[in-house]
């Protein structure tokens, strides 16, 4: 790799240049805010769903992308958040907003607690442990009578869809802003250092256990919030749908496609892939597997940094990518 071919890869390469990235993001945000005002129910529904997935991908990005600990059980936090709102609103009669706050806090606390033992594991073992834990949460919800067992929970009817659209969008904006703040903070530096060389980070004074757990808890919090909004929006929730384990892989692929470790990458990846899935709902199952499989291959073979990484490398990156693709070079 020639010295002058290397472009600076900083902690946060959202899009080509900082200011351009911000301008584009704000434009997109304005567009998104305007959608429900057009009265198009279809898009309101579809986009709310995409926002939820984007939050989950962004949440994964904090523990998986920045810290390098690929968690495979994030859907567990989503379901936990959903059930928190479900139980709080239908069993305890809480209003929505406090329930939503609880939906964020409970997963964060649980993540911090199990994080202590689980984050001692690395690589495959960590992935399996988080996957198992996520599945276990789902099984618990599906069998615990207090939370409705296999019948799930019914919540009170909520406001019109536009309300949920904006709340989910707000959670997404929160997730992006949180990621951006983390990336430029001491925590962000520590997480990247842990990802790149955990032992070197430790001897330089980084309390790795503390920071890993913090990242894990933050990712759980954001994911839980999305789950909480989903619950009220859906009005009734069952364990199999809010604890859908196939989504664990989906959200990782989305984050990787957009660029793990970048600020906006996972959101872009989520919009692309989930948007695509929506358009193919008819033949959903077959297409889902084929598309995600193809995307995984694409990323592994040609795009390890995702689209965000490609963009960060500018024209050279695109040229190399196309060249590799043509030569089918692995």
């Amino acid at each position: 790799m020639g010295a002058n071919a290397s472009r600076r890869r900083s902690l946060l390469p959202p899009i080509t240049s900082r200011s351009l990235g911000w301008v584009l993001s704000v434009l997109v945000l304005i567009l998104l805010v305007a959608v429900p005002l057009n009265g198009d129910d279809y898009w309101v529904r579809v986009l709310t769903g995409i926002f939820a997935v984007a939050v989950m991908a962004e949440g994964w990005n904090i523990i998986g992308g920045f810290t390098g600990y690929a968690a495979f059980g994030q859907v567990g936090w989503f379901g936990l958040g959903a059930y928190t709102v479900g139980v709080a609103m239908s069993r305890w009669g809480w209003p929505f907003w406090p329930s939503l706050i609880a939906a964020g806090l409970l997963p964060a606390v649980v993540a911090a607690l199990i994080g202590v033992p689980i984050l001692r594991l690395r690589g495959h073992y960590f992935a399996i442990a988080t996957l198992a834990f996520g599945i276990a949460l789902g099984e618990l919800a599906n069998n615990l009578r207090y939370v409705g067992a296999s019948s799930g929970i019914s919540l009170p009817i909520g406001p019109p869809f536009a309300f949920f659209y904006y709340v989910m969008l707000a959670v997404l904006v929160l997730a992006v802003v949180a990621t951006w703040l983390i990336a430029r903070s001491r925590l962000g530096y520590a997480l990247v250092a842990i990802r790149e060389n955990e032992q070197a980070a430790a001897v330089l004074g980084v309390n790795t256990a503390l920071y890993k757990t913090a990242a894990f808890a933050i990712s759980a919090l954001l994911t839980g919030l999305a789950g909480g909004v989903q619950a009220y929006w859906s009005t009734s929730i069952y364990a199999p749908t809010v604890f859908d384990i196939t989504r664990n892989v989906d959200l990782i692929v989305m984050a990787l496609l957009g660029g793990a470790g970048t600020v906006l990458g996972p959101v872009v990846g989520a919009f692309l892939l989930d948007g695509l899935n929506e358009q193919l709902t008819g033949a959903f199952l077959q297409w889902h597997a084929v598309i995600f499989g193809a995307v995984v291959l694409l990323i592994v073979l040609f795009l390890p940094g995702g689209l965000g990484g490609l963009v960060a490398q500018g024209r050279t990156g695109v040229r190399n990518f196309l060249r590799d693709l043509k030569a089918f070079r692995v």
Binding site: R9, S10, A193, E196, N197
Partner: peptide
């Protein structure tokens, strides 16, 4: 093995 995701300055900043 430097922290690959970072620039030279950022590597040193960790210290």
């Amino acid at each position: 093995r430097p922290f690959a995701g970072m620039s030279v300055r950022e590597n040193v900043a960790i210290g």
